[in-house]
């Protein structure tokens, strides 16, 4: 399994990677991108099975990335990992085609349950 982690914070990318390992995804290949634009390139070149994406980022935000993917008929499984915790953001994410939204701070159990529920 290949997972793309998209976050402008290097610290958060490391925490997401560490949490994935703790959640049982230690065998997954992890690819990283620092914003939505970099992620578009990474998705094309790396062909990940899952995208875990922050919401607020410079250059291209997470929701802009998701909308760009879906408008190009790319149905790659996509989940937000974001500090945006409001119901409004969850609704916006779902309407744009996100499979889930994990709120920071998070635990390995949340990752395990959320990503596991997708059959990943």
């Amino acid at each position: 399994m290949k997972i793309l982690i998209v976050d402008d914070s290097k610290a958060m990318r490391m925490i997401v990677a560490r949490t994935l390992r703790q959640a049982g995804y230690g065998d997954a290949t992890l690819v990283e991108a620092g914003n939505g634009r970099e992620a578009l390139t990474a998705i094309e070149t790396s062909q990940p099975n899952l995208v875990l994406c922050d919401w607020n980022m410079p250059e291209m935000s997470g929701i802009e990335l998701l909308r760009a993917l879906r408008s190009a008929n790319n149905s790659i499984p996509f989940g937000f990992v974001t500090s945006e915790a409001s119901q409004e953001m969850k609704d916006t994410a779902a309407a744009a085609g996100a499979q889930f939204l994990i709120t920071k701070p998070f635990t390995p159990k949340v990752f395990e349950e959320t990503i596991g529920s997708m059959g990943a």
Partner: peptide, 14 residues
């Protein structure tokens, strides 16, 4: 950023 994002639960939408 995490603190501010979680505060949004207590604030008006938008």
């Amino acid at each position: 950023n995490m603190i501010a994002g979680n505060l949004k639960i207590h604030l008006p939408a938008g």
